[in-house]
């Protein structure tokens, strides 16, 4: 049996997301079975462009309005510079043939990386399962994460 690996994806910064996917896809090539657990801001990466339903309650409505980052519109944690820095970074990445975040998600899935969305975050942020991209394998909580983490040789928090 393959050794397991877990990555908690907490952030939705472009740089951290890229690092997370480089680690998970790289892990497959090294004989590991990676699970990525997307929580808090990281959940934005798994959201569809448009929500099918508006969350109940005005606070959640406001949050979903502000929380608009998606896999294809993430920004760098540094050097964003009102979008100029991130645009240049994407240009350089494209030139270096580094996959974009949506391409990374597809590639990770093809390689067998497991993608889990955190249910608590979904509840807090007012995100329904229908609003998540189809690459999500499962929605779950901390017990699911820890049961895999206990068996894993590598556990990361990004």
């Amino acid at each position: 049996m393959d050794d397991e690996m877990t990555i908690i994806v907490f952030s939705n910064d472009l740089d951290r997301i890229l690092a997370s996917f480089i680690l998970s896809t790289g892990a497959v090539t090294m004989g590991l079975k990676p699970t990525m657990f997307f929580t808090f801001w990281g959940l934005n990466v798994l959201k569809k462009e448009k929500a099918t339903r508006s969350p109940a309650g005005w606070i959640k409505k406001m949050m979903s309005l502000i929380n608009r980052r998606r896999a294809d519109s993430l920004k760098l944690s540094q050097f964003h510079m009102f979008g100029i820095g991130t645009a240049f970074m994407k240009k350089i990445m494209n030139k270096s043939k580094i996959p974009s975040v949506p391409e990374m998600i597809t590639m990770a899935k093809e390689l067998g990386v497991k993608i889990i969305a955190c249910t608590t975050t979904m509840e807090i942020m007012g995100v329904h399962q229908d609003d998540l991209i189809e690459e999500v394998d499962n929605v779950a909580g901390v017990a699911t994460y820890l049961s895999t983490a206990k068996l894993s040789k590598v556990n990361l928090f990004v």
Partner: peptide
């Protein structure tokens, strides 16, 4: 040629 990490090892694995 021209590919950066992790693409070479992914391609090797395939």
């Amino acid at each position: 040629y021209g590919l950066l990490c992790p693409m070479p090892i992914i391609k090797i694995t395939q």
